[in-house]
Design a binder for these strands. Structure first.
Length: 351
DNA sequence: AAATCGGGGGG
DNA sequence: CCCCCAGATTT
C-alpha cells in the first residue's frame, strides 16, 4: 500500500467539497450527462466546453436522441470545438448502447472502455463519477499533480508511466465517494496545481506532503518529452460567388483532418492570379473577376496552413460544388475555424 | 512508440 | 511565439 499517496485522500476531498466549481455536468451527474461532458472535455478547457455542452444537451437530451441524430446536425453542434472524430465516435457508441445495452450506458469499466471514443481515462471518469466505482481516471491534470506530489521526473507522456500512476491511485481510491475523488484530483490540477506559470501552493491542501513543494521543484515538473515541429502547408482558398451571390462549398472527406466538415474550394500551393483563373477554367467556367484577398494562416497541432485567398465572381455555378446562401452556410453547414478569415470576407462582401 | 486529430487562452 | 488543455485512435 502506498503510504505517501494515501495521505492525500482526506485533505483533497475536504478541499474539493469546500472549493469545487459549480459545473453543469456536476450538478446532475447522470451517466449520459457525464459521458457527453467527458468527451467534450478531452483536450479541451472547461470554459470552452460550457456553451457547447448546454446547447448539446438541450438539442440531444437522451442517448436515443443522439443515436438518431443526423450527422450534419452533430457536426454543427460540434462546430468550432475541434477533434471532430469525438462526436462521430460519440454517436457510434450511442448506437451500440441503444442496440446492445437497452439504451442504458454500462457501469462496468471494461464495457465502457470497449465503446468508441472511450479510452482509459474516459472509462475511469464515467465509472467513478456516474457510477461511483473506485476506478482511477488519469488525465493531464492528474499526471501533473501526482508528478509534483511524488516529485517524479519521469516522462508523463510515456504510456507506462501513465499506467503506473494509475495503478498507484487504484490502491488508495475511496470506495464511498469515488466520483468526488476523481473530480478533486482534476479540479486541483486545473485550479491550484496549474500548468502554466506558478502553481498556487499556498492554497493547496496537499502542500504539507508535496515533495515538489518541500524541495521547491514545482516549476520543473512535470517532465514531458519534446514535441516535433509542425509542418507548413500552403493552400489557396477561393471565395467563389455565382450571379445570385451563392457561395461555393464542398464537404471534406469523411476521414482525416476536419473530416466531414464543409469548406471553400481550395487548391494546394500558393496560386498566382493566372493560376487561379486557370483553376476555374479547368472546371468549365471563366471568372468574371478575380480579386486577391489578404493572406491568412491557421495553426493546428501538427500542421500550419498558410492560405492565399481569392474572391472569384462567376457567370454561373459549376456542378463540382454545392452552392449555398450565406444564411444557409451559417445555419446548417459546419465550417472549421481554419476558414474564419474567409467567412469574414463573406460578411464584408455580402453584408 | 509515434503520428494524427482542433482550437483557444494565457504566459 | 510557446505552452497546455477532464485524450483516443491509428499506424
Amino acid at each position: 500500500m502506498n503510504d505517501q499517496l494515501k495521505q492525500i485522500v482526506a485533505p483533497l476531498l475536504e478541499w474539493y467539497r469546500r472549493c469545487a466549481r459549480k459545473l453543469s455536468w456536476r450538478s446532475d451527474p447522470t451517466p449520459y450527462r457525464v459521458w457527453v461532458s467527458e468527451i467534450m472535455l478531452q483536450q479541451t478547457r472547461v470554459e470552452a466546453v460550457k456553451p457547447y455542452y448546454e446547447r448539446f444537451m438541450e438539442q440531444l437530451p437522451t442517448v436515443q436522441a443522439l443515436a438518431e441524430a443526423e450527422e450534419e446536425k452533430l457536426l454543427k453542434l460540434w462546430e468550432g470545438l475541434g477533434y471532430y472524430s469525438r462526436v462521430r465516435n460519440l454517436q457510434k457508441a450511442a448506437k451500440v448502447v441503444m442496440k446492445i445495452y437497452g439504451g442504458e450506458l454500462p457501469a462496468d469499466f471494461e464495457t465502457l472502455r470497449s465503446l468508441p471514443g472511450i479510452g482509459e481515462y474516459t472509462a475511469g471518469a464515467i465509472a467513478s463519477i456516474a457510477f461511483g466505482k473506485p476506478v482511477p481516471a488519469v488525465d493531464g491534470n492528474v499526471l501533473r499533480v501526482l508528478s509534483r506530489v511524488t516529485e517524479s521526473r519521469r516522462d508523463i507522456l510515456n504510456s507506462k508511466v501513465k499506467k503506473e500512476f494509475s495503478e498507484q491511485l487504484r490502491e488508495i481510491y475511496p470506495t464511498d465517494c469515488a466520483g468526488d475523488f476523481t473530480q478533486a484530483l482534476m479540479e486541483l490540477g486545473a485550479m491550484v496545481c496549474v500548468p502554466n506559470g506558478v502553481p498556487l501552493c499556498e492554497q493547496c491542501p496537499l502542500s504539507h506532503c508535496c515533495q515538489a513543494f518541500l524541495h521547491q521543484t514545482m516549476l520543473e515538473l512535470p517532465v514531458k518529452a519534446e514535441k516535433k515541429p509542425r509542418k507548413l502547408k500552403e493552400k489557396t482558398v477561393f471565395v467563389a460567388l455565382d450571379p445570385q451571390n451563392r457561395i461555393a462549398v464542398q464537404k471534406r472527406p469523411d476521414t482525416g483532418l476536419l473530416a466531414g466538415l464543409w469548406e471553400f474550394p481550395n487548391a494546394e500551393g500558393a496560386l498566382t492570379r493566372e493560376q487561379a483563373a486557370e483553376y476555374w477554367k479547368n472546371l468549365g467556367v471563366c471568372p468574371g473577376s478575380i480579386q486577391k484577398l489578404r493572406a491568412a494562416k491557421h495553426i493546428f497541432t501538427h500542421v500550419e496552413w498558410k492560405m492565399s485567398g481569392y474572391l472569384v465572381r462567376l457567370p454561373q455555378s459549376v456542378d463540382q460544388f454545392v452552392w449555398v446562401t450565406k444564411e444557409e452556410l451559417h445555419g446548417q453547414y459546419a465550417v472549421p475555424n481554419a476558414y474564419k478569415a474567409f467567412l469574414k470576407v463573406l460578411a464584408e462582401v455580402l453584408g
